[in-house]
């Protein structure tokens, strides 16, 4: 009988769907994994492993997952000409997205510093030459979805869906012995969907400015300017790993599809501010026109 474990963690709701209820030991291991990630990477926690870098230039050692995150971020940064960067954290705080909530700071956007000027991030070591607020939000949640999947694998739970509020990964036969069907929420009208895709043995992630919005601003910033993106209002991506799907969903706010497709394998849909949608693969097949009020 399918079962669902619900957790609130890293500021989002998690649903871990399996074919049988999870035992206490697995649940504890999942909680530990999420908590460890948060303690390492959260820019909202003063005790996080990266927190000292916000106060002063220096060096920190990060957990093992740092290595692939560093590689992915560097590649994304280069491919998008700096639009995607972990240095966007200070720009976010400047616009009012902070640990204690959001505020209207009234400040103009400011571009983050150039990567090579201030940051060396290799493997599990991060070294900086200035105080930096690092933000791994473009790929971190997806990576954690993958890592929670690893925990489940280690406990012999191979058929499941790990869903962190819409950033998710289906594995094995899923929780229901079939692919999971995901609605693509319309960023213009919450509660509506622009289509449906089926996901099986892979990950799905979405990115939309409507999730974190305050004072007319949202949290997806262009690393070249430090300002919120306005051309693209929603992206949806299927890729093998959630970390990559998450990162591509962010990068699609800034970068041409062709550029990204040279480096990563994915399918996507993307909605522009005018409501136009472009889509590839199964996204094109799954789009539908939303219902109109009677």
């Amino acid at each position: 009988m399918p079962a669902r474990l619900r957790l609130d963690a890293i500021g989002t709701r998690w649903s871990i769907d399996t074919q049988e209820p999870l035992g206490d030991e697995v649940v504890a291991a999942i909680r530990d994994r999420i908590d460890a990630y948060d303690r390492a990477w959260s820019r909202f926690r003063p005790d996080a492993a990266i927190a000292p870098l916000a106060r002063a230039a220096g060096e920190v050692r990060m957990p093992q997952e740092s290595a692939e995150l560093a590689t992915l971020y560097r590649q994304l940064h280069d491919v998008t000409d700096g639009a995607v960067t972990p240095l966007v954290g200070a720009s976010l705080e400047r616009l009012g997205y902070r640990a204690d909530g959001v505020a209207d700071t009234g400040l103009a956007p400011e571009a983050p510093p150039a990567w090579d000027d201030v940051l060396r991030w290799e493997g599990t070591t991060i070294r900086t030459t200035a105080p930096l607020v690092l933000d791994v939000g473009a790929a971190g949640k997806g990576q954690l979805v993958d890592l929670v999947g690893d925990v489940l694998d280690a406990h012999g739970i191979h058929d499941r869906v790990v869903d962190a509020s819409g950033d998710l990964r289906h594995a094995g036969a899923g929780d229901q012995g079939r692919p999971t069907r995901v609605a693509l929420e319309d960023p213009r009208a919450l509660g509506h969907a622009i289509g449906v895709v089926e996901v099986e043995g892979e990950a799905f992630c979405a990115s939309a400015g409507n999730r974190r919005r305050w004072a007319g601003r949202h949290h997806i910033l262009d690393g070249r300017t430090g300002a919120p993106t306005d051309e693209v209002i929603g992206t949806w991506v299927v890729a093998e790993r959630a970390m990559v799907a998450d990162a591509i969903a962010t990068a699609l706010s800034f970068a041409p599809v062709g550029l990204l497709a040279r480096h990563w394998s994915f399918e996507h849909a993307r909605m522009y501010a005018g409501g136009q949608v472009e889509a590839t693969g199964r996204f094109a097949a799954g789009l539908h026109v939303r219902k109109v009020a009677a």
Binding site: S15, V161, G166, L168, T180, V182, E185, A208
Partner: peptide, 9 residues
């Protein structure tokens, strides 16, 4: 018709 929502707010 679907199991979950993506881009969910």
């Amino acid at each position: 018709s679907v199991d979950r929502v993506g881009g969910s707010s």
